[in-house]
Protein backbone atom coordinates (compact mmCIF):
# COMPACT_ATOMS: atom_id res chain seq x y z
CA UNK A 1 0.00 0.00 0.00
CA UNK A 2 1.47 3.34 -1.08
CA UNK A 3 -1.01 5.47 0.93
CA UNK A 4 -3.95 4.77 3.22
CA UNK A 5 -6.63 7.00 1.79
CA UNK A 6 -7.36 9.27 -1.13
CA UNK A 7 -9.65 12.14 -1.95
CA UNK A 8 -10.11 14.35 -5.00
CA UNK A 9 -11.73 17.63 -3.96
CA UNK A 10 -12.94 20.04 -6.61
CA UNK A 11 -12.24 23.29 -4.81
CA UNK A 12 -9.07 24.77 -3.34
CA UNK A 13 -10.83 25.36 0.01
CA UNK A 14 -11.81 21.73 0.29
CA UNK A 15 -8.26 20.65 -0.55
CA UNK A 16 -6.89 22.98 2.16
CA UNK A 17 -9.30 21.54 4.70
CA UNK A 18 -7.96 18.06 3.98
CA UNK A 19 -4.36 19.32 4.14
CA UNK A 20 -5.14 20.74 7.61
CA UNK A 21 -6.29 17.51 9.16
CA UNK A 22 -5.48 17.73 12.84
CA UNK A 23 -5.55 14.04 13.72
CA UNK A 24 -1.82 13.64 13.10
CA UNK A 25 -2.27 11.90 9.75
CA UNK A 26 0.37 12.71 7.18
CA UNK A 27 -1.29 14.34 4.18
CA UNK A 28 0.19 15.14 0.77
CA UNK A 29 -1.20 16.95 -2.21
CA UNK A 30 -0.74 15.09 -5.47
CA UNK A 31 -1.06 16.62 -8.94
CA UNK A 32 0.24 14.69 -11.95
CA UNK A 33 1.98 12.17 -9.72
CA UNK A 34 4.91 11.78 -12.11
CA UNK A 35 7.42 12.40 -9.30
CA UNK A 36 5.42 11.63 -6.15
CA UNK A 37 4.18 8.18 -7.20
CA UNK A 38 7.78 7.10 -7.84
CA UNK A 39 8.90 8.55 -4.48
CA UNK A 40 6.06 6.75 -2.67
CA UNK A 41 6.93 3.48 -4.35
CA UNK A 42 10.60 3.83 -3.41
CA UNK A 43 9.58 4.82 0.15
CA UNK A 44 11.41 8.13 -0.19
CA UNK A 45 8.15 9.74 0.86
CA UNK A 46 5.56 8.34 3.24
CA UNK A 47 2.03 9.58 3.54
CA UNK A 48 -1.30 8.49 4.96
CA UNK A 49 -3.54 10.48 2.66
CA UNK A 50 -3.30 11.79 -0.88
CA UNK A 51 -5.26 14.92 -1.74
CA UNK A 52 -5.57 14.85 -5.51
CA UNK A 53 -5.65 18.44 -6.78
CA UNK A 54 -5.23 17.54 -10.44
CA UNK A 55 -8.87 18.08 -11.36
CA UNK A 56 -9.63 21.27 -9.42
CA UNK A 57 -10.93 23.56 -12.20
CA UNK A 58 -9.48 26.73 -10.59
CA UNK A 59 -6.01 25.17 -10.63
CA UNK A 60 -6.14 24.30 -14.32
CA UNK A 61 -6.82 27.74 -15.77
CA UNK A 62 -4.36 29.82 -17.76
CA UNK A 63 -5.40 33.45 -18.08
CA UNK A 64 -4.17 36.92 -18.93
CA UNK A 65 -4.95 39.88 -16.68
CA UNK A 66 -3.55 43.06 -18.18
CA UNK A 67 0.18 42.47 -18.53
CA UNK A 68 0.22 39.54 -16.05
CA UNK A 69 -0.04 35.95 -17.21
CA UNK A 70 -1.42 33.54 -14.60
CA UNK A 71 -0.95 29.79 -14.65
CA UNK A 72 -3.04 27.57 -12.41
CA UNK A 73 -0.68 25.28 -10.51
CA UNK A 74 -2.27 22.12 -11.94
CA UNK A 75 -1.87 23.26 -15.56
CA UNK A 76 -0.16 20.38 -17.36
CA UNK A 77 2.83 20.60 -19.68
CA UNK A 78 0.46 19.72 -22.53
CA UNK A 79 -1.62 22.77 -21.59
CA UNK A 80 1.53 24.94 -21.66
CA UNK A 81 2.49 23.49 -25.05
CA UNK A 82 -0.97 24.07 -26.52
CA UNK A 83 -1.89 27.40 -24.87
CA UNK A 84 -2.12 30.32 -27.28
CA UNK A 85 -1.48 32.69 -24.36
CA UNK A 86 1.73 30.90 -23.40
CA UNK A 87 2.92 30.90 -27.02
CA UNK A 88 2.26 34.59 -27.32
CA UNK A 89 3.48 35.80 -23.94
CA UNK A 90 5.96 33.27 -22.51
CA UNK A 91 7.11 31.12 -25.38
CA UNK A 92 9.97 29.59 -23.41
CA UNK A 93 7.49 27.69 -21.21
CA UNK A 94 6.00 25.95 -24.25
CA UNK A 95 9.52 25.18 -25.40
CA UNK A 96 10.39 23.70 -21.99
CA UNK A 97 7.15 21.68 -21.91
CA UNK A 98 7.99 20.02 -25.21
CA UNK A 99 11.37 18.92 -23.85
CA UNK A 100 9.97 17.32 -20.70
CA UNK A 101 9.43 13.54 -20.69
CA UNK A 102 7.31 12.13 -23.51
CA UNK A 103 3.67 12.82 -24.40
CA UNK A 104 2.25 10.87 -21.48
CA UNK A 105 4.40 12.72 -18.93
CA UNK A 106 3.43 16.00 -20.64
CA UNK A 107 -0.27 15.08 -20.30
CA UNK A 108 0.15 14.27 -16.59
CA UNK A 109 2.89 16.49 -15.13
CA UNK A 110 2.01 19.99 -13.90
CA UNK A 111 3.91 23.22 -13.43
CA UNK A 112 2.95 23.39 -9.75
CA UNK A 113 4.20 19.85 -9.29
CA UNK A 114 7.49 20.74 -10.95
CA UNK A 115 7.81 23.59 -8.42
CA UNK A 116 6.86 21.52 -5.36
CA UNK A 117 9.25 18.74 -6.37
CA UNK A 118 12.05 21.35 -6.47
CA UNK A 119 14.58 19.31 -8.38
CA UNK A 120 17.60 21.36 -9.51
CA UNK A 121 16.91 19.71 -12.89
CA UNK A 122 13.21 20.73 -13.02
CA UNK A 123 12.87 22.16 -16.52
CA UNK A 124 10.19 24.79 -15.95
CA UNK A 125 12.08 26.30 -13.00
CA UNK A 126 14.78 28.24 -14.93
CA UNK A 127 11.95 29.64 -17.06
CA UNK A 128 10.17 30.91 -13.94
CA UNK A 129 13.42 32.51 -12.70
CA UNK A 130 13.92 34.19 -16.08
CA UNK A 131 10.31 35.39 -16.01
CA UNK A 132 10.78 36.63 -12.41
CA UNK A 133 7.62 34.73 -11.47
CA UNK A 134 5.56 35.13 -8.33
CA UNK A 135 4.25 31.99 -6.63
CA UNK A 136 0.87 32.15 -4.89
CA UNK A 137 0.66 29.81 -1.93
CA UNK A 138 -2.69 29.18 -0.27
CA UNK A 139 -3.49 28.04 3.23
CA UNK A 140 -6.58 28.27 5.44
CA UNK A 141 -5.11 31.55 6.75
CA UNK A 142 -5.20 33.05 3.26
CA UNK A 143 -2.84 33.53 0.33
CA UNK A 144 0.80 34.54 0.48
CA UNK A 145 3.18 35.38 -2.33
CA UNK A 146 6.76 34.19 -2.69
CA UNK A 147 9.17 35.29 -5.41
CA UNK A 148 10.48 32.39 -7.49
CA UNK A 149 14.02 33.26 -6.40
CA UNK A 150 12.94 32.80 -2.75
CA UNK A 151 10.80 29.73 -3.31
CA UNK A 152 13.47 27.17 -4.00
CA UNK A 153 15.79 26.74 -1.01
CA UNK A 154 17.88 23.78 -2.13
CA UNK A 155 17.51 20.40 -3.80
CA UNK A 156 13.95 19.25 -2.90
CA UNK A 157 13.65 22.14 -0.41
CA UNK A 158 11.09 24.89 -0.84
CA UNK A 159 9.45 27.72 1.06
CA UNK A 160 6.27 25.62 1.15
CA UNK A 161 5.02 24.81 4.67
CA UNK A 162 2.98 21.76 5.59
CA UNK A 163 -0.75 22.39 5.03
CA UNK A 164 -0.01 24.84 2.20
CA UNK A 165 -0.80 24.46 -1.48
CA UNK A 166 0.74 26.16 -4.51
CA UNK A 167 -2.21 27.59 -6.40
CA UNK A 168 -0.87 29.97 -9.00
CA UNK A 169 2.23 31.12 -10.86
CA UNK A 170 2.13 34.70 -12.19
CA UNK A 171 4.54 36.90 -14.12
CA UNK A 172 4.73 39.93 -16.40
CA UNK A 173 4.33 38.85 -20.00
CA UNK A 174 7.45 38.91 -22.17
CA UNK A 175 7.12 42.38 -23.74
CA UNK A 176 6.83 43.09 -27.45
CA UNK A 177 10.44 44.16 -27.76
CA UNK A 178 11.73 41.02 -26.04
CA UNK A 179 12.14 37.35 -26.86
CA UNK A 180 12.45 34.25 -24.72
CA UNK A 181 14.07 30.85 -25.14
CA UNK A 182 14.70 27.62 -23.28
CA UNK A 183 17.50 25.22 -24.21
CA UNK A 184 18.35 21.92 -22.64
CA UNK A 185 21.23 19.52 -22.74
CA UNK A 186 20.00 15.99 -22.03
CA UNK A 187 21.65 12.67 -22.70
CA UNK A 188 18.97 12.04 -25.29
CA UNK A 189 16.18 14.09 -26.80
CA UNK A 190 13.15 12.81 -24.88
CA UNK A 191 12.57 11.38 -21.42
CA UNK A 192 15.85 12.94 -20.34
CA UNK A 193 16.73 14.66 -17.09
CA UNK A 194 18.71 17.81 -17.83
CA UNK A 195 22.50 17.91 -17.62
CA UNK A 196 22.28 21.67 -18.09
CA UNK A 197 19.24 23.77 -18.96
CA UNK A 198 19.04 27.47 -19.70
CA UNK A 199 16.20 29.99 -19.85
CA UNK A 200 16.64 33.50 -21.23
CA UNK A 201 14.40 36.53 -21.65
CA UNK A 202 16.07 39.35 -23.57
CA UNK A 203 14.64 42.73 -24.56
CA UNK A 204 16.13 44.97 -27.24
CA UNK A 205 15.40 48.70 -27.66
CA UNK A 206 17.13 50.93 -30.21
CA UNK A 207 19.61 48.21 -31.06
CA UNK A 208 20.75 47.74 -27.47
CA UNK A 209 19.90 45.10 -24.89
CA UNK A 210 17.44 46.85 -22.60
CA UNK A 211 16.65 43.95 -20.29
CA UNK A 212 18.05 40.49 -19.80
CA UNK A 213 17.43 37.62 -17.42
CA UNK A 214 19.32 34.35 -17.76
CA UNK A 215 18.79 31.37 -15.46
CA UNK A 216 20.36 27.93 -15.43
CA UNK A 217 19.28 24.60 -13.99
CA UNK A 218 21.22 21.45 -12.99
CA UNK A 219 24.37 23.46 -12.29
CA UNK A 220 23.93 24.35 -8.59
CA UNK A 221 21.84 23.24 -5.57
CA UNK A 222 19.06 25.55 -6.75
CA UNK A 223 18.32 27.19 -10.07
CA UNK A 224 20.65 30.19 -10.46
CA UNK A 225 20.44 33.48 -12.28
CA UNK A 226 23.66 34.51 -14.00
CA UNK A 227 24.41 38.12 -13.04
CA UNK A 228 27.78 37.98 -14.84
CA UNK A 229 26.08 37.24 -18.14
CA UNK A 230 23.33 39.77 -17.52
CA UNK A 231 25.68 42.62 -16.53
CA UNK A 232 27.93 42.03 -19.50
CA UNK A 233 25.00 42.27 -21.92
CA UNK A 234 22.96 45.09 -20.43
CA UNK A 235 22.91 48.32 -22.47
CA UNK A 236 25.23 46.81 -25.10
CA UNK A 237 24.58 46.25 -28.78
CA UNK A 238 24.50 42.47 -29.31
CA UNK A 239 27.39 41.20 -31.39
CA UNK A 240 28.83 37.77 -31.98
CA UNK A 241 31.87 38.63 -29.89
CA UNK A 242 29.88 40.11 -27.00
CA UNK A 243 27.47 37.14 -26.87
CA UNK A 244 30.39 34.75 -26.86
CA UNK A 245 32.14 36.55 -23.99
CA UNK A 246 28.86 36.78 -22.06
CA UNK A 247 28.19 33.05 -22.45
CA UNK A 248 31.74 32.37 -21.29
CA UNK A 249 31.08 34.41 -18.14
CA UNK A 250 28.41 31.90 -17.07
CA UNK A 251 31.13 29.90 -15.35
CA UNK A 252 31.47 32.56 -12.63
CA UNK A 253 27.89 31.96 -11.46
CA UNK A 254 27.52 28.18 -11.48
CA UNK A 255 28.88 25.42 -9.26
CA UNK A 256 27.90 22.14 -10.86
CA UNK A 257 28.42 18.75 -9.26
CA UNK A 258 29.45 15.43 -10.72
CA UNK A 259 26.66 12.85 -10.92
CA UNK A 260 25.60 9.96 -13.16
CA UNK A 261 24.54 12.35 -15.91
CA UNK A 262 27.77 14.28 -16.20
CA UNK A 263 30.86 15.53 -14.43
CA UNK A 264 31.19 19.01 -12.97
CA UNK A 265 33.85 19.83 -15.58
CA UNK A 266 31.57 18.67 -18.40
CA UNK A 267 28.68 20.78 -17.11
CA UNK A 268 30.94 23.85 -16.93
CA UNK A 269 32.01 23.12 -20.49
CA UNK A 270 28.52 22.68 -21.98
CA UNK A 271 26.91 25.55 -20.06
CA UNK A 272 28.55 28.08 -22.37
CA UNK A 273 27.21 26.85 -25.74
CA UNK A 274 23.74 26.33 -24.26
CA UNK A 275 23.68 29.85 -22.81
CA UNK A 276 24.82 31.15 -26.18
CA UNK A 277 22.09 29.21 -27.96
CA UNK A 278 19.43 30.49 -25.57
CA UNK A 279 20.63 34.10 -26.02
CA UNK A 280 20.72 33.74 -29.81
CA UNK A 281 17.20 32.33 -29.95
CA UNK A 282 15.77 34.89 -27.54
CA UNK A 283 17.37 37.75 -29.54
CA UNK A 284 16.08 36.30 -32.80
CA UNK A 285 12.56 36.13 -31.38
CA UNK A 286 12.88 39.67 -30.02
CA UNK A 287 13.64 40.93 -33.52
CA UNK A 288 10.84 38.86 -35.09
CA UNK A 289 8.28 40.18 -32.62
CA UNK A 290 9.44 43.78 -33.28
CA UNK A 291 9.20 43.28 -37.02
CA UNK A 292 5.67 41.88 -36.93
Amino acid sequence: MLYQSYCAPDTIEEALTHLNRTDGARVRPIAGGTDLMVQLRERLVQTDMLVDVSSIPDLKRIWLDGHRLHLGAAATYTQLIESELVHQHAYLLAEAGRLIGGKQIQHMGTIGGNLANASPAGDTLPCLYALDADITIASLEGDRHVAMSEFMRGPRKTALRPHELITQISFDVVPEHAGSAFTKMGLRHSQAISVVDVAAVVGVLDGRIASVRVALGSVAPTIVRSPSVEQMLLRQAPSDDLLDRAAEATRHDIEPITDIRGSAAYRLYVAKPFVRQALDRALERASVSRAS
Binding site: G32, G33, T34, M37, V38, L50, Q104, H107
Partner: peptide, 24 residues
Protein backbone atom coordinates in the same frame (compact mmCIF):
# COMPACT_ATOMS: atom_id res chain seq x y z
CA UNK B 1 7.26 6.67 -16.06
CA UNK B 2 10.28 6.11 -18.29
CA UNK B 3 9.10 3.38 -20.65
CA UNK B 4 5.45 4.00 -21.55
CA UNK B 5 4.50 0.32 -21.62
CA UNK B 6 1.68 0.88 -19.08
CA UNK B 7 -0.02 3.55 -21.22
CA UNK B 8 -3.84 3.53 -21.04
CA UNK B 9 -6.44 6.17 -21.84
CA UNK B 10 -7.88 7.82 -18.74
CA UNK B 11 -10.83 10.01 -19.70
CA UNK B 12 -9.47 10.06 -23.23
CA UNK B 13 -5.91 11.10 -22.29
CA UNK B 14 -2.88 8.83 -22.71
CA UNK B 15 -1.86 8.19 -19.12
CA UNK B 16 0.80 6.11 -17.41
CA UNK B 17 -1.02 3.58 -15.23
CA UNK B 18 2.10 3.08 -13.09
CA UNK B 19 2.02 6.73 -11.95
CA UNK B 20 -1.73 7.01 -11.41
CA UNK B 21 -3.39 6.41 -8.03
CA UNK B 22 -6.10 3.85 -8.78
CA UNK B 23 -8.79 5.94 -7.10
CA UNK B 24 -8.21 8.69 -9.68
Amino acid sequence: GECGSCTVFLNGTATLACLTPMER
